[in-house]
């Protein structure tokens, strides 16, 4: 389809030329495409090339074979229309929460050129964004004065401040306790519902994937391949209550069984 946003066509990646010659690929033959504004999740066992997939989707790595197109354009280098967040919040400890969130605007064009003149406007925008994730009142705190969940909220704000068209999340809630994690699911759900950016969520957590995503992809052990594509037809808006319903648990079970068979295989 030509109107796909993320479009992988038979993508293979080896990390070096020697690896390519030895047929040692990190991911093999990835083909997938997403609709604009679609929320996809990628699940799979550790070391299955999920992070490699992220690097391909952001242009940090070029495909060894095949083609990656984002928003209709072939990817040839780092993509500025992307925001990223990881399991570790990677906030800068010498900057306040507000200034951490502002960091991308100091770097990415066109904001970079306007940063000095429009500093106040940008700070206001960062404050509003922080407020939407429940961090009002913490703008001038330093990261080490925040809890893990708050740091991760700030990290997501940093990924979104330049209004990227695509958000890439690499196990963003992996290090949080169960309650905080579920809270942040809803934070992410609300941000996405309001702004409808494209999301690629890489996770180990099947419930997380099924709760948040429109489509879940299951990857195999290294070399990573996509084994299953599962559309999640649960109605939106979804609420945490849904995770206790029969259709939800059925989907999770089904995916769990597939992953179980990969691990035994």
């Amino acid at each position: 389809m030509s109107d796909a946003f993320v479009d992988f066509r038979g993508v293979w990646l080896a990390y070096s030329e020697e690896a390519a010659r030895a047929e040692d690929y990190a991911v093999e033959d990835i083909t997938l495409s997403t609709q604009p504004g679609e929320f996809i999740a990628i699940v799979g066992p550790s070391g299955c090339g999920k992070s490699t997939f992220m690097k391909l989707a952001t242009g940090l790595k070029r495909a060894t074979r095949g083609e990656v197109r984002i928003a209709g354009e072939p990817v040839t280098g780092p993509l500025k229309i992307v925001g990223m967040a990881f399991q570790a919040p990677t906030l800068l400890p010498w900057r306040t929460t507000l200034h951490n969130v502002l960091l991308p605007l100091e770097i990415v064009q066109p904001y970079r050129a306007q940063f000095k003149q429009r500093r106040e406007a940008f700070a206001e925008r960062a404050r509003r964004l922080l407020a939407t994730v429940g961090l009002q009142g913490y703008e001038d705190k330093f990261p080490w004065q925040l809890s893990g969940g708050m740091q991760q909220r700030a990290s997501i704000c940093r990924a979104l401040i330049h209004e990227p068209r695509m958000l890439l999340l690499d196990e963003p809630f992996g290090a949080l306790d169960a309650f905080t994690r579920e809270e942040l699911w809803n934070v992410l759900r609300d941000l996405w519902s309001a702004q409808r950016f494209n999301v690629i969520l890489v996770t180990h957590d099947l419930r997380e994937a099924v709760y948040l995503a429109d489509t879940v992809y299951v990857m195999s052990k290294r070399p990573g391949r996509i084994l299953v594509r599962r559309e999640i037809d649960l109605p939106r808006p979804r609420d945490l209550e849904i995770t206790y319903t029969e259709p939800f648990t059925q989907i999770v079970h089904e995916l769990r069984a597939r992953i179980g068979s990969i691990r035994r295989g």
């Binding site: 780092p78 990223m84 990881f86 570790a88 960091l103 940093r158």
Partner: peptide, 11 residues
Amino acid sequence: ELEDVLRVLGA
């Protein structure tokens, strides 16, 4: 990771 975040932004 931090370097990736910044490089994607065109740093």
